[in-house]
Amino acid sequence: MADASTQDMLPIGDWVNEIIHFMLDHNAGAFDAIGNSIDWFANMVEFVLLGIPPLIMGGIFVAVGLWRLGWKFAVFVVAALGLIWATGFWSQTIATLALTLSATCVSLVLGVPVGIWCARNKIVNTVVRPVLDFMQTMPAFVYLIPAAMFFGLGRVPGILATVVFAVPPAVRLTNLGIRQVNKEQVEAGHAFGCTSWQLLFKVQLPIALPSIMAGVNQTIMMALSMVIIASMVGAGGLGNDVLASIQRLDVGLGFESGLAVVLLAIILDRITESFGASPSARSEQGS
């Protein structure tokens, strides 16, 4: 590939290689620090989740399902988790859940503030939009490899590659949610003497919450789909089984592990979706 690009009129590939190598040579310390803190965080999340006995873990899911969506969904959760348990994928599923949650947390910590910034600043928005397009459509393998070069094989490059893929919906839907706040509601904030921060925390963010929660939901879904691919750099979890099934042409194993991914996805999707319900549904809860 590098050979081909040397003959190009515009050797972007060479420049990227140069940049990557320069960064590897000169900023190793920074990458180590980032990598270590992410590794520590992901370890902690996994340690906690794996430390919870399966029955209690399952109980928590069923209870949340019952609280947010009612008994029908709770029955589904019982059946789904039972199936995962019975096919022997429990610990891998929890590992995948831990990876997904770690990546989601990092994505939201980065994505929501950037989304707010985009909503408030035209220039930032103009710059960020193509970057988001880039992050979402650039084939995952392309940045999976440099991530592994920077951080070594394992969970960290997997999580970071996942973050690249999962940040855009958090940014986009936070931005959209804030922009969709009714003009007169923003004016009301100003008219009663809100400072910039008060406007953000007392008017814009609360009103944008349903949209932001939709962003959280999308981020989780994106993260879940990406942590499977991230197993190629050794992220672990259900992705390992999916990868093994491809390598061994074991269709049955592939289906079982894939099914566990699907069931986990449905559970996470429905639960997080319920938190983004309209304010009327929320107030009914409250009153």
């Binding site: 007169e184 509601q185 004016e187 100003h190 008219a191 009663f192 609360p206």
Partner: peptide
Amino acid sequence: DLRRRDMSMVFQSFALMPH
């Protein structure tokens, strides 16, 4: 300060906070 102390506004679309 002026907006907090001396004036307030009522809007056509009410502009209440739904939350």
